[in-house]
């Protein structure tokens, strides 16, 4: 019962919270650059506007894939907040991104294709680390269910500092932030036009934006699990992590895809080392 309430609350509230966080993100970024910045509600204006625009479709299939992307992102988040199986959630999450890549490949546009290719590289870069995070949380809490992980009284972060650091690295990829912002090229606009989102416009782009808000809330939820033994510390840690990501976004230049891939896998190595030590200690203790 609790699970259904969590899922419904996520489906309703996550776009609101996600949009608000995106607005605060843009404001903080502007302040870091010595600018005034847009209003906090700007992301909502943007998406509202996108739904007011004419819908230009190159290939009908592309819209279908974007809807699938949105649905699977929302579903994986809903499972997460329902306390479901983290492994299932991670796989649904990856499937969602595969749909986005397919949508970008559906159109015959070189920029869209480059963006899709880079998105696949990003998926390859972050996927190992996300699975390791799930495994690490399992080793600490003894269950793959998010509900049990959230209810554990063990401070997971003390056992999994390496896994958490690795997750922080790939979080920059997932939040589409520098130095790993290679597939949408948010900051380096015009380099590959708009990468994976080049051929999506109007309402379809709005759906991608909303999916991204869902995604961000889910990822912050994942960060929270490392501090779940104390909700206050948990919320503070999530906020600190996010602001740190904004800071890194503003002080780093974008890297090439090779470095992004290596970065993601180095993070995974850090996670593996952490888990190896942890399992050694657990066997030693038993």
């Amino acid at each position: 019962m609790n699970g259904i309430v969590g899922a419904v609350l996520f489906l309703i509230l996550a776009p609101l919270a996600g949009g608000l966080i995106a607005g605060i993100d843009r404001k903080i970024t502007a302040r870091m650059q010595g600018r005034v910045g847009p209003p906090i509600l700007q992301p909502f204006y943007d998406v509202g506007k996108l739904f007011e625009k004419e819908s230009v479709v190159v290939v009908t299939a592309q819209n279908f894939y974007v809807v699938a992307y949105l649905v699977f992102i929302a579903l994986s988040g809903a499972f997460f907040f329902a306390g479901g199986d983290l492994l299932l959630i991670v796989f649904a999450f990856t499937l969602a991104h595969v749909f986005l890549v397919l949508g970008a490949y559906a159109v015959h546009s070189p920029y869209s294709h480059i963006g899709a290719e880079r998105e696949l590289i990003q998926v390859m870069a972050y996927e190992p680390m996300i699975i390791l995070a799930a495994v690490g949380l399992y080793m600490v809490s003894g269950s793959f269910y998010v509900a049990d992980m959230a209810a554990t009284t063990v401070p997971a972060i003390l056992y999994l500092p390496g896994v958490f650091l690795g997750l922080a690295v790939i979080l920059a990829i997932k939040l589409r932030k520098s130095p790993f912002d290679i597939s949408t090229s948010h900051h380096a606009h015009q380099e590959i036009v708009k990468g994976i989102t080049t051929e999506f416009s109007g309402p379809t782009l709005g759906q991608i934006e909303i999916a991204h808000w869902y995604e961000n809330i889910f990822l912050l939820g994942l960060v929270y699990l490392f501090f779940a033994w104390n909700p206050v510390i948990g919320v503070v840690a999530v906020a600190v992590t996010y602001v740190a990501e904004i800071f890194i976004d503003n002080v780093t230049a974008r890297v090439r895809w090779q470095t992004a891939l290596k970065g993601g896998w180095l993070a995974a190595l850090l996670g593996i080392a952490n888990l190896a030590i942890l399992s050694y200690m657990m066997i030693g203790g038993a």
């Binding site: 843009r26 502007a30 650059q33 010595g34 600018r35 005034v36 910045g37 847009p38 209003p39 700007q42 204006y45 943007d46 506007k49 625009k53 230009v56 606009h189 015009q190 380099e191 036009v193 708009k194 989102t197 080049t198 051929e199 999506f200 416009s201 782009l205």
Partner: peptide, 21 residues
């Protein structure tokens, strides 16, 4: 630039005609 900062008004300089108004 920070002096005029048109992003205050929600204005974004995009490189993509399909996203532009």
């Amino acid at each position: 630039t920070p002096l005029y900062d048109v992003e205050r008004f929600g204005i974004i300089n995009t490189g993509n005609p399909k996203h532009a108004d």
